[in-house]
Amino acid sequence: MAEFKVVVADPDAGETYQRDVDGQDANRFLGRSLGDEVDGGAVGLDGYTLEITGGSDETGRPMRADVPGTSLKEILLDGGVGFKPTTDGERKRVTVRGAEIADDVAQVNVSVVDGDGDVAAALGEGDDEAEADDAE
């Protein structure tokens, strides 16, 4: 059974939120590729649309949009996702994962592209300081 950590980015607020999904909610991501849009109901954001922007497998290898499928592939990189060169012209062979989400993926990064209202409120994320003030 698939199980992912989904990192939801809210570009309007500049915040990110993490959610663990499994079961039927995780199955909504299987077979999707980077750039695809999914229903936000899988992470508790009913009425929102999310775009898959990235992810990584259990060993930390990043997903790349230019690698098809779900398999691992060694590619020669001069920058971008998976490698940051330290000198001009530096290249390195790096193992990356394909753009399609499979059971091997541990983390999926998504961004909110459509929906009305406050994402933090929809996810049940409150202002910790305000809650602490209310408790006193």
Rank of each mutant, 00 (worst) to 15 (best):
G54P: 06
A42V: 09
R32A: 09
M63T: 11
G89R: 04
Y48D: 01
G47I: 07
V81P: 01
G69P: 10
N27V: 07
G82H: 05
G14H: 06
D20E: 10
T16D: 12
D25M: 11
G44S: 13
G60L: 04
D25Y: 08
D22E: 08
S56C: 14
A99D: 06
G80I: 01
G80T: 00
T95D: 06
D20H: 05
G60H: 08
T87D: 11
N27E: 15
D78N: 14
D36F: 11
V81S: 05
G60I: 10
L72W: 14
D20S: 13
D25S: 14
V96Y: 03
D88R: 00
D10I: 02
M63P: 13
V43R: 02
D88T: 07
F29H: 00
V81A: 04
Q24G: 02
P85H: 08
Y48M: 02
E58Q: 14
Y17A: 02
D12Q: 04
T59F: 10
S56V: 08
A99L: 01
E74D: 15
G80F: 04
F83E: 02
G80M: 01
P68D: 12
S71N: 15
D36G: 03
T86G: 14
G41D: 15
T95C: 00
D57L: 12
T49C: 01
G41M: 10
D57V: 09
Y17V: 05
G44N: 12
V38T: 08
R97H: 06
E15R: 13
K92M: 11
M63W: 14
R97W: 00
S56D: 13
G35F: 04
S71F: 08
